[in-house]
Design a protein around this nucleic acid. Structure first.
Lengths: 418, 418
DNA sequence: GATTCTTCTTCCAACCCTTCGAATAAGATC
DNA sequence: GATCTTATTCGAAGGGTTGGAAGAAGAATC
């Protein structure tokens, strides 16, 4: 049984308050925060005091006042430290350095050799990218509060062992051990599905909503599930493998070895496959780079080629049915779709997919769910990875201890000068 | 945002302690409870004191002691009151009266007319069954702590409106209003999926496990999802409609109007349909009563008829793939299967289905999940419905107030005599 | 039969968290 | 400069859990 203590409440409230500050259009007053979180005034003052003391928030001027004391504006202190987010994908490693306000300060992308990449190669590439990030941005390592790394496949978080990779023949690779040494930074490992979801919870649709499903559609596809404002990880941190649920029994062969998986139809490769099916002769559909193929498809569709429209139409149907499965099973308030497939085909694909969801889902859960395109700026995976590091920092007991410590400190030290 | 207060912690701990008492092989000592829940000794003493005062627990003798003060045994006080659980199914209403130890004291089953039943008919039948229950068991209405009612389809709990029924053409039926008046009992409404799941959480596999999926397989099929020891309801209390997720695109027509739903293959009707498909001439497969048809199928399989074996084999494959979808998506620790389909075909169906899950699920979530046949005694739906009433009673602020009230009461009243 | 042991329970004080309400602070306005 | 008006801080109270001391209850022993 999971122990629940009053400190968990405080931790969640701390997260909640800070999430609202990030979510807000700019700086927010304590009043706004109390209204937004539903917490009492005193509690908000309490939590913000703690965050101010830790340097995470700063006072940023005052609001206009029509008589009476003006409200202080609180904003995230971007300069408090840096966060690193890394997205390990099939063909490249994308690393970004964020400030604490989660603005991108520097970005590096390094290719991975094609074929079966060894763990050591990935570690080298990653470590190199991080060094470049630090050097180019002139950031001292000590200012980095943590690094989040998204690894495709399934990762055991604590041990940091990658037990399955969809692209490479990895087997029980002790990633944490390999990276810890090289990076010398607080490290947070997980997969792209959960990274995107956390990004969405802090900076996207999840700001307003507590039950959502986040679909990541690129070379691999999958879902992140957040329930009651909490990410659902599953018993072995491998929940959300929607890409490998069966949509068409005895259907198309999937990379996982099974048939009829969702991923075989709506991933970049799956869409390319549909194009090949519908236009057997077309050599634009035959290239080895699926992202390029889908980009070509988008151009063909823009040129009103009927076959391209048919491919998009079919894909929308697959996607709609698969999303409807999620809607029926999870009954979320919002379904967010994002990443390469959406970036390339969004305008054409999504309206048709939305319509297909309506045909396949039951009326009540369908009415309850809104479908949205991801509004998280930039790459949601690197941002989500950095968010893991942010969450880790906010959980740091050295920085955010129990309140009694604060009281003692306040008594011991003098009053802070204005 | 959901407010979290320290009272929620206490509420959850109260549930947890009581669940362990129900789960235990008999009476349990406070020591056992502390060990089982992970709570401190003082807290367990605190909570049990409260439950003893409310009459929910009683001291039931002492354990043997090899020197030292013997441990007091605590047991549920069956006589504290009665609970009623009602299962409204397609063709009948099944009502049962339980004591507080959740033993069945009396059981009534009344048929519903075939065809499109009106809400008033169901309400009449239900009210009649409850009256019979009370009369036959000699239970005074005032001793009934609450009644839980399982309604097929989708029910909005607070308003008690049934917005969709799979069998009847109901539309926004205000069930709570209709029943409140007739029953005059605290009333708890939900659907059979969630009822079975709650039964499993208190009295079945959920006793040991916090993340589980409970599959109800009868005329309709669906899943109940419990995460972190909490039932997942979804945004509109309609999560778990696994029966209407698409397993075979463009597949068999389902009662919901879609094609290829899981329910079209693994419900009683679906299995009968598979039999008709494989043995077009066989009139045993052609009857209108699906439960009877599946019972006949079981007999045919027992008689080693090859076609019957083939039907079971196919069904196992459908079921296995559909369960694998759940395993991949939710990554639970346990999947429980139960109800009529399992009762009739369990021995033959489940081993093959388990094997099919292994073929379809990803390795890591598959290894993490164990599949079990439901071990909840008797009808899990009536028991689950009664459990809703039990949970409601345990949430009653009149009975279980904040601790400070207890202190005051203890001060006001004298010490209890030994 | 009294004493000693051993173990269970209860009780108390300490600690964590939120929240109400009074007191204090800080500008705007007259 | 006095008076409003609104924000913020502060202290006490209320709801929880928990470790440890003190009390209670049998078993074993002398």
């Amino acid at each position: 049984m999971i122990k629940r203590t009053s400190q968990d409440i405080r931790r969640l409230n701390r997260f909640e308050v800070l999430r609202r500050v990030y979510a807000g259009p700019g700086a927010m007053s304590r009043q706004d925060l109390a209204a937004a979180t539903g917490l009492s005034f005193a509690t908000v003052a309490n939590l913000t005091a703690e965050l101010l003391e830790a340097g995470v928030l700063v006072e940023a001027g005052h609001e206009e006042s029509g008589g009476g004391r003006p409200r202080a504006r609180l904003a995230v202190n971007a300069e408090r430290g840096a966060l690193i987010g890394v997205d390990i994908a099939e063909t490249s490693v994308h690393a970004e350095l964020f400030d604490l306000a989660l603005s991108v300060r520097h970005s590096v992308e390094r290719p991975l050799p094609p074929g079966d990449v060894r763990p050591a190669d990935v570690v080298d590439t990653l470590a190199g990218a991080v060094e470049e990030l630090l050097a180019a941005s002139g950031t001292d390592r000590s200012r980095v509060l943590g690094a989040g790394v998204s690894v495709p496949g399934m990762v055991e978080r604590e041990g940091g062992v990658s037990s399955f990779s969809p692209y490479w023949s990895w087997h029980e690779v002790p990633l944490r051990a390999l990276l810890d040494e090289r990076l010398g930074l607080p490290l947070w490992l997980d997969n792209p599905l959960r990274a995107s979801t956390v990004a969405e919870m802090w900076f996207g649709a999840g700001r307003e909503v507590d039950d959502l499903v986040v679909l990541t559609l690129r070379a691999g596809v999958g879902a992140g599930i957040a329930i009651g404002g909490q990410l659902h990880r599953g018993f072995t941190n491998s929940a959300g493998e929607w890409g490998h649920t069966c949509l068409a029994l005895d259907g198309r062969l999937c990379t996982c070895g099974n048939r009829g998986c969702v991923e075989a139809y709506v991933s970049l490769r799956g869409i390319a496959g549909t194009w090949r099916e519908l236009a057997p002769g077309d050599e634009r559909a035959a290239g080895p780079d699926d992202a390029a193929t889908v980009a070509a498809l988008a151009r063909a569709a823009d040129a009103d080629e009927p076959v391209a429209a048919a491919v998009v139409e079919r894909t929308a149907r697959y996607l709609g049915a698969a999303v409807a499965n999620l809607v029926n099973l999870v009954n979320p308030q919002v379904v967010v779709v994002g990443n390469q497939v959406v970036d390339l085909l969004g305008e054409r694909l999504l309206p048709a997919a939305y319509e297909a969801v309506g045909r396949h889902a039951l009326a009540l859960p369908h009415r309850a769910a809104t479908l949205r395109r991801s509004a998280v700026p930039h790459n949601p995976v690197t941002r989500g990875a950095a968010t893991f590091a942010l969450e880790g920092f906010l959980d740091d007991r050295e920085v955010f201890g129990p309140v009694s410590r604060m009281r003692k400190a306040a008594k011991g030290g003098g009053a802070a000068g204005g």
